[in-house]
């Protein structure tokens, strides 16, 4: 009887020490769930969800503060992926945060640009090149199409140009199959 109690006590101490040590040794930095959510978000950094970027939104979803349907650039598909990851029911996108649009990139009309640098300060991914009183231009390959540069421009020289379909971007369409009519 006493031996059994001792065995259990010693076992408890040993297991406790091992668990305590591994909790310190293998501590996971950051929130792994937020990490996974962030990987699904489109990284537009547009802030349409109401958070200052994709990472803060991911953290808010992970902590249960935000819903999964606030990201218009991610669209229906992104929302479904989030629902799958989190094991919740998919829900329609919240339209108060905007609606999905075709992918576009910003374009600066260089004839009008006065070189005020306001758009450079607004760009979340440093995709605008230029300096004070110098003409600015968009680095098209880096632009995420977040539209954050459009509002600050004092001379309205920035417009969003939808990306045209060209050969390298062309995709096979889902085959349209006419099913035979069964009477």
């Amino acid at each position: 009887m006493l031996a059994a109690i001792w065995v259990m006590v010693i076992l408890a101490i040993v297991v406790g020490v091992v668990l305590g040590w591994s909790a310190v040794r293998f501590k996971v930095e950051g929130n792994p769930l937020a990490e996974k959510i962030d990987a699904i978000l489109p990284q537009t950094q547009c802030g349409q969800c109401g958070f200052p970027g994709c990472r803060p939104y991911a953290e808010a979803i992970a902590s249960g503060e935000a819903d999964i349907n606030l990201c218009p650039p991610g669209g229906e598909e992104g929302m479904k992926k989030l629902a799958e990851l989190l094991g919740v029911e998919p829900k329609p996108l919240d339209e108060t945060h905007g609606t999905p649009k075709p992918k576009s990139i910003a374009f600066i009309d260089e004839q009008i640009c006065i070189g005020c640098t306001l758009c450079i300060q607004a760009c979340p991914v440093d995709a605008i090149s230029g300096a004070a009183k110098q003409m600015h231009t968009i680095i098209a390959s880096e632009c995420t199409g977040c539209e954050l540069c459009v509002a600050p421009c004092p001379v309205n020289c920035i417009s969003m140009v939808p990306i045209a379909e060209d050969l390298p971007r062309w995709k096979w369409k889902h085959p349209v199959v006419m099913l035979k009519k069964m009477s």
Partner: peptide
């Protein structure tokens, strides 16, 4: 196949955007 390629391309673009934002 072409959807998967397009997604991979998008993924690369969004990884780049994340790095640049960070």
């Amino acid at each position: 196949k072409s959807e998967i390629w397009a997604r991979e391309k998008e993924k690369r673009a969004s990884d780049l955007a994340r790095d640049r934002h960070e």
